[in-house]
């Protein structure tokens, strides 16, 4: 939590220097996860086979059988992706060395995004146990969670970006000052002053 803290505690070193280190650690972890998946799956059969009656279609192998060995890896991969997304989003929205008013809502957004993934995995477990359960909004439950929950969940970050755009993401006066001060610098250099 200290990583994205706000206010006086947010020293220059916290956000500005630790976010890239966090992203580096997450990238390494994702690399490790892929290595484990590749090693564990070196003898695994195909995930899907040609459909017995319709050659232009693929048909999945048994859902429970193919999901069991990779379910934990899938959950970990999703969690790492949510964290990586959060780190990148924070890196883009930091100003100088701080995240300012965006820090706390960012945690809320990441919790929502993570919860949507969690709900998806939970619903999928139920789906494997009983694929004939009643449809939700015309779709099987985990698919409905994916389309109506996981797809729009990151809209929270869009809202956050737009909500703080004028007072945090971009201040047009500052932009104008930046552009004019650098053009003055260039003028000084040309004059040799």
């Amino acid at each position: 939590m200290a990583l994205l803290s706000v206010g006086p505690a947010a020293s220059a070193s916290t956000v500005a220097t630790r976010l890239p280190a966090l992203l580096f650690a997450l990238a390494l972890a994702i690399g490790g996860l892929l290595a484990i998946a590749a090693w564990g799956g070196r003898d695994a059969g195909p995930e899907a086979l040609p459909h017995p009656r319709h050659p232009s279609l693929l048909r999945a192998t048994d859902g429970a059988e193919r999901a069991a060995p990779v379910a934990a890896l899938g959950v970990a991969f999703a969690a790492l992706q949510v964290a990586f997304f959060g780190g990148c989003f924070a890196l883009g929205l930091r100003r100088g060395a701080s995240l300012g008013p965006i820090a706390r809502p960012l945690w809320v957004g990441l919790a929502l995004y993570g919860a949507a993934f969690g709900l998806l995995f939970h619903a999928y477990r139920g789906f494997l146990a009983d694929p004939t359960a009643p449809l939700l909004l015309s779709l099987p439950r985990p698919t409905a969670v994916m389309l109506y929950g996981l797809w729009p969940a990151p809209l929270f970050f869009a809202w956050l970006y737009l909500r703080h755009f004028d007072d945090w993401v971009v201040d047009e006066d500052e932009v104008a000052r930046l552009l004019s001060s650098t053009s003055e610098d260039a003028g000084d250099e040309e004059r040799g002053t």
Partner: peptide
């Protein structure tokens, strides 16, 4: 959904025919 479920439940499940890790790798 009902037609796809009757033929191959996974095809209309969240990971489709390709499976969980393939879908998550595309997503990333």
């Amino acid at each position: 959904s009902s037609t796809l479920l009757a033929d191959d439940p996974e095809s209309i499940g969240p990971w489709g025919s390709l499976g969980m890790l393939a879908c998550l790798s595309w997503y990333f």
